Simulated assay, not measured.
Amino acid sequence: MKISRDKQGLFDDVKQRYQYLLDSSYPDEIVSFEKETGIFSDDFYLFFSLVAGSLSYVIDHKRIPKKQLNVLRQSFEEQYPQIKSYQQIHESYPLLHSYVQYHEETRKQIIALIQ
């Protein structure tokens, strides 16, 4: 995958996001969310892995597999409608919410970069 000159700034930002994701750890609030709501935390980990894995393809200038790209085109809420209490995440779990938002913004940047 070649990066056009007009998308170089976006690519540089995505690279910084990738490094941040490599250096950061999942928020501890995931465990609290699971215990308090009874909703399994697997969905969060799947979403985070999808975004980070897709970023690794972009950084290495490789094509994202079609099935993965189809899932990546969906927002967190579209992928995991069973987490109906998304607003509850925002209100009760601010670190988890910001981590989901960071991944959501990164997901959008990946899509913008590869289009």
Results as ranks from 00 to 15, higher is better:
53 G>V: 03
53 G>Q: 13
54 S>G: 15
54 S>A: 15
54 S>W: 00
54 S>I: 03
55 L>V: 03
55 L>M: 08
56 S>T: 09
56 S>V: 09
56 S>W: 04
56 S>M: 09
56 S>N: 09
57 Y>E: 09
57 Y>P: 11
57 Y>R: 10
57 Y>H: 12
57 Y>A: 05
58 V>R: 00
58 V>G: 01
59 I>C: 11
60 D>H: 09
60 D>W: 06
60 D>A: 11
61 H>S: 10
61 H>L: 03
61 H>K: 14
61 H>Y: 10
61 H>P: 06
62 K>E: 11
62 K>I: 00
62 K>C: 01
63 R>H: 10
63 R>C: 11
64 I>Q: 08
64 I>C: 04
65 P>G: 07
65 P>T: 12
65 P>V: 09
66 K>F: 13
66 K>C: 08
66 K>E: 14
67 K>Q: 13
67 K>M: 14
67 K>S: 13
67 K>R: 08
67 K>G: 05
67 K>W: 10
68 Q>N: 11
68 Q>R: 10
68 Q>H: 10
68 Q>P: 03
68 Q>T: 14
68 Q>Y: 10
69 L>W: 14
70 N>Y: 14
70 N>C: 11
71 V>N: 07
72 L>R: 04
72 L>A: 02
72 L>H: 05
72 L>N: 00
73 R>D: 05
73 R>P: 02
73 R>L: 06
73 R>W: 09
73 R>Y: 04
74 Q>H: 13
74 Q>S: 14
74 Q>A: 01
74 Q>I: 05
74 Q>F: 07
75 S>K: 06
75 S>A: 06
75 S>I: 06
75 S>M: 05
75 S>H: 07
76 F>M: 03
77 E>L: 02
77 E>F: 05
77 E>M: 06
78 E>L: 07
78 E>A: 08
78 E>V: 03
79 Q>K: 11
79 Q>Y: 03
79 Q>H: 01
79 Q>A: 02
80 Y>P: 02
80 Y>F: 13
81 P>Q: 12
81 P>M: 08
81 P>Y: 09
81 P>I: 11
82 Q>G: 09
82 Q>E: 06
82 Q>P: 01
83 I>R: 01
83 I>W: 00
84 K>H: 15
84 K>N: 11
84 K>D: 13
85 S>V: 07
85 S>K: 04
85 S>P: 00
86 Y>P: 09
87 Q>S: 13
87 Q>E: 12
